[in-house]
Simulated scan of single mutants.
Amino acid sequence: MFCNGQPADAAALGAALVNYGHFTSLQVRGHAVQGLDLHLQRLAHATQALFGSVLDEGQVQRWMAQALHLAGVADASLRVTVFSRAFDFRAPLATVAADVLVAVSAPVRLSAARAVCSVRYQRDLPAIKHVGTFGLFQQRREAMAAGFDDALFLTAEGLVSEGSTWNIALHDGQQLVWPQAPALRGTAEALLRQHWEQPQVVRAVDSVELDAIQAAFACNASGIWPLATIDGRALAGSEALAGQGRAVMAGVPWQPLRA
């Protein structure tokens, strides 16, 4: 772990324990990232929203590349967390400089099919990938305790929004459907929507429509995986649909991390 380009010490990590900040998670292969610009834009936008300050995207990219170099790896999972040692919850409107924590871990690629259950839940500030993850992890835990693999979130009005740590794409037999509801719009979703050449649409999806869905997959920066069932209803076409998604992502260029 590295904070502002230096090995993270106890002082930096102690400040990062404050439950106020945001992050992005990404996969690196051969010192390159799919959707690197989207990850950096996400960090810059959220830094302005939470701290009122401007994030130097170029510096963040250099710190990411440096962390890989110091860890001696070209393939990895990176989590880039933005917090502020100057943030004071008693004066939250103050504009404060951001600190950047880069954590390097082993690369992953998610692909196994999952069974999910729908629950009515919405994260705070759903458009921001913030560090307040207690609620969504608890929803996943409760889903697993009930015999499922994960939770699919619905709004209070019953609209499909997102999974615990992933976005969802549905197929209604004619086109790919991206649910329109308050949610974190992921980098994988953005890349798939940009490069998907078959019919697709973004629209509100009521939970009652799930009974007619023929296939679905989940996606985030760690991969694409089929949803075998939703609320116990089997989706026979999900494996094939996820395969289409992976084929699309295979053609998305990797952007090099520049030191």
Rank of each mutant, 00 (worst) to 15 (best):
A215K: 03
R185Y: 14
I224P: 04
E209T: 04
L191I: 07
W178M: 15
G163P: 05
L210C: 03
P253Y: 08
A234C: 07
L235M: 08
L235N: 02
G186I: 02
A183V: 06
Q244N: 08
T165P: 07
E209H: 10
S161P: 01
I168K: 01
G223L: 06
I213F: 10
L210D: 01
A216F: 03
S222M: 15
S207R: 11
F217D: 07
P179R: 00
L192C: 06
A188V: 10
A221Q: 06
Q194T: 12
Q214C: 11
A215E: 02
A190I: 03
S222V: 10
V205Y: 08
G186M: 06
T187K: 08
S207N: 13
P182D: 09
F217W: 09
P182L: 13
Q244S: 06
G232I: 00
A242C: 04
Q180L: 15
Q198F: 06
S161G: 06
S207C: 15
L210I: 01
E197P: 09
Q174K: 14
A188G: 09
I230F: 01
R185S: 14
S161A: 15
F217M: 06
A190V: 04
E209F: 12
A215S: 02
P253Q: 11
T165C: 15
N220P: 01
L227R: 00
A228R: 11
G243Q: 07
Q214D: 12
A188E: 09
A247E: 04
V252R: 03
T187A: 14
A181K: 10
G232T: 04
G251I: 12
A240C: 10
H171F: 09
A218F: 09
G243M: 04
E197V: 11
W225H: 11
A221W: 01
V160M: 08
D206S: 13
Q194I: 00
P199W: 02
G245I: 01
R203K: 10
Q180H: 13
A215V: 03
A190L: 10
Q180W: 12
G158E: 08
V205R: 05
A190T: 11
G237M: 13
E197C: 12
M249P: 00
A242F: 01
A228M: 06
E162P: 05
E162A: 08
A190M: 09
G163D: 05
G243Y: 07
A236K: 07
A221L: 03
S161D: 05
N167W: 00
W166P: 09
